[in-house]
Write a protein that binds this DNA or RNA. Structure first.
Length: 599
DNA sequence: CATTATGACGCT
DNA sequence: AGCGTCAT
């Protein structure tokens, strides 16, 4: 199976961390009365007691479920405490939870090699190197193992699990003494995770659950197996068995339409069943019956064997910021003014959060997007009024204003929206409004956009000399913080922000799929993907179009005059020369005098 | 009238 | 650029 030395060398220790009923924990920290009693967090308690978006384990045990109405929860659990999400600008405001999450993942980031925040209350960690280091010193490992309280090679707290699960998780599954197995890496990782969880609890008061395995998919799969406040390890030796009986929809990525199609049309019950479809067959399914998308085939053939090569990135800040509100039934918006009223409100929140992103993460947005849903239209057919379901959703984007305050954001959004909201939309009513900021770029200056401009200037000019290097955004130097005692041994400084590479599930490396289901080692040989197996010719012809992107050159209308004025004269020259080279002289000259008008 | 708000990312 | 899918 997978216990080759090669597999062990390359095996990673990847962790999925998941805050337990997080909104409830946040509310409980603010109001300890809520501790130990069934309680739930709802938003908008006016209608039927509000919608439940988080619930305590006491409430869950009483049959309360997420998405229930507060009133329905009271039926099954009369003594439930309902807490309402704060409201600002006439909408639910999740700031409190976002910030609480940040505090948690800052701790995680400090204590792990890599921390990738994936939502308000979840993150992946890669602690491979830390685990290896710990393994290299057995005495140290044993000492910290004792301190951590982690049990290795024994059955742990699996009261709620069935026999099948008990066999898979923990029971005799880890042999830390054996340096050659992937299990010892996970054993060391388990100790480190326990320490991280203790640090989070200590610094923030919050508890979390974690899954520990060799890749993102597997760690996520098991992180919730022992909630709350427990960690679960999944050995590579148990993966094949686990997947063979795992309902397909329970695996990340198969919970939606794709999973439904595979279940309905291919009579696949368990993840392991997918193994009987070779890569070829999956591809043919994609081509012939449109059950799967062609580019999903490679990913699927790996996933069903427990393989997931996606790396853990280093990022705790969001890549986009958005806020929105739905307007159901009679509250749907039926006039432009009404829409503007709410765009104004949403803009206030977005502006605040953008300011926060700038202060906290040095992020500056380049793009604003507005999207809306418009209600189902009623159409007359054969004299009958027929209600066409399926709401229409639209989105438009525009450049983010240089000073993204609420007024400017609202102005920019309304400008694109007014063209869109025709009488048709207004008659049907707007049922949903979202605005968001994306293309967040990392800057170090106070002056908004100046680094971006410099980057553009430099990339537009051909040569990149060493002397230019100071123009680029520097990764923050890792502060050599002094730590003492045990903490020193497993903590790391915060990792700097790194923009992600664009991932592609199928066309990435890692395509070879072995037949031994337990093998979760990374495959790095680049083999033909489904795509070029079947579309070699096509992919060649499209390559020049899609995969090779020429960077946009700087044009006058991209240059903000206030930004330009701040540049050293030497750079002003550079900017001008870079622009002159691509524009007709006349146009350039004319614009130079008029360029106070921005696009 | 009622599963909200918010992310990430793939496809075209 | 805009739309669709998946997740919680």
């Amino acid at each position: 199976m997978s216990h080759t030395s090669k597999a062990t060398e390359r095996a990673r220790c990847v962790v999925h961390v998941d805050l337990d009923c997080f909104y409830v924990q946040v509310e409980r920290k603010m109001n300890p009365e809520l501790l130990k009693v069934p309680c739930a967090v709802v938003q908008y308690n006016k209608f039927q007691g509000g919608g439940i978006i988080a619930l305590s384990y006491e409430a869950k045990a009483r049959g309360v479920r997420r998405s229930m109405r507060g009133n329905d929860a009271r039926v099954v659990c009369p003594d439930i405490r309902l807490v309402t999400v704060p409201t600002a600008n006439e909408k639910a405001d999740l700031t409190r939870y976002r910030n609480a999450g940040s505090s948690v993942f800052e701790v995680c980031a400090r204590h792990s090699d890599l921390c990738e925040r994936t939502s308000i209350d979840e993150a992946y960690l890669d602690i491979t190197l830390q685990a290896r280091t710990l393994l290299s010193n057995m005495d140290e490992f044993k000492r910290r193992l004792r301190l951590s309280g982690v049990m290795i090679g024994t059955e742990s707290n699996l009261a709620d699990s069935d026999e099948f699960e008990k066999e898979i998780f923990w029971k005799d599954s880890l042999q830390p003494e054996n340096n050659d197995t992937q299990d010892s890496l996970l054993a060391a990782g388990s100790v480190i995770v326990a320490e991280i969880r203790a640090a989070v609890k200590d610094k923030t008061g919050y508890t979390l659950s974690a899954g520990i395995s060799h890749n993102k998919m597997l760690s996520k799969l098991v992180s919730g197996k022992n909630k709350p406040n427990k960690q679960t390890v999944l050995s590579s030796t148990k993966v094949e068995k686990l997947l063979s009986r795992l309902p397909l929809r329970d695996l990340n990525g198969f919970g939606g339409k794709l999973g439904d199609k595979l279940i309905d049309k291919c009579s696949i019950k368990y993840v392991g069943d997918l193994k009987k479809y070779s890569l070829m067959k999956l591809a043919k399914m994609a081509i012939g019956s449109e059950i799967v998308r062609i580019n999903s085939a490679t990913w699927m053939s790996q996933a069903c064997r427990g393989i997931c090569t996606e790396t853990v990135k280093s990022r705790i800040a969001a890549k986009s910021i958005s806020c929105g509100k739905t307007f159901r039934g009679p509250t749907r918006l039926r006039s432009i003014d009404n829409v503007k009223e709410y765009i104004d409100k949403l803009s206030i929140e977005l502006a605040e959060r953008l300011q926060n992103a700038k202060q906290k993460h040095r992020q500056v947005a380049k793009l604003i997007t507005v999207s809306y849903h418009t209600g189902s239209k009623t159409v007359k057919r054969k004299g009958q009024e027929i209600n066409l379901t399926g709401n229409i959703s639209k989105s438009r984007s525009c450049r983010c204003p240089a000073t993204p305050n609420a007024v400017n954001i609202s102005k920019a959004v309304m400008q694109v929206l007014e063209k869109e909201l025709d009488s048709e939309c207004i008659r049907a009513g707007v049922t949903c409004l979202y605005i968001g900021a994306s293309k967040l770029e990392n800057v170090r200056d106070e002056a908004t956009g100046i680094d971006t401009l410099l980057k553009k200037v430099v990339s537009a000019s051909t040569a990149t000399s060493e002397s230019d290097s100071h123009l680029y955004i520097q990764k923050p130097k890792q502060a050599a913080k002094r730590r003492t005692g045990i903490e020193q041994m497993f903590t790391r400084p915060l990792t700097p922000y790194e923009p992600n590479k664009k991932p592609n599930r199928s066309l990435q490396a890692a395509t070879r799929v072995s037949n031994d289901g337990g093998d979760i080692q990374q495959k790095e040989e680049t083999k033909p993907t489904i795509h070029n197996l079947f579309f070699r010719a096509k992919s060649k012809s499209t390559k020049s179009n899609s995969s090779i992107r020429i960077q946009n050159q700087l044009t006058w209308n991209q240059v903000d005059q206030t930004v330009f004025r701040e540049l050293p004269s030497e750079l002003q020259k550079e900017v001008m020369s870079s622009i002159r080279s691509e524009m007709p002289q006349q146009a350039t000259r004319r614009k130079r005098f008029k360029w106070s008008q921005k696009p």
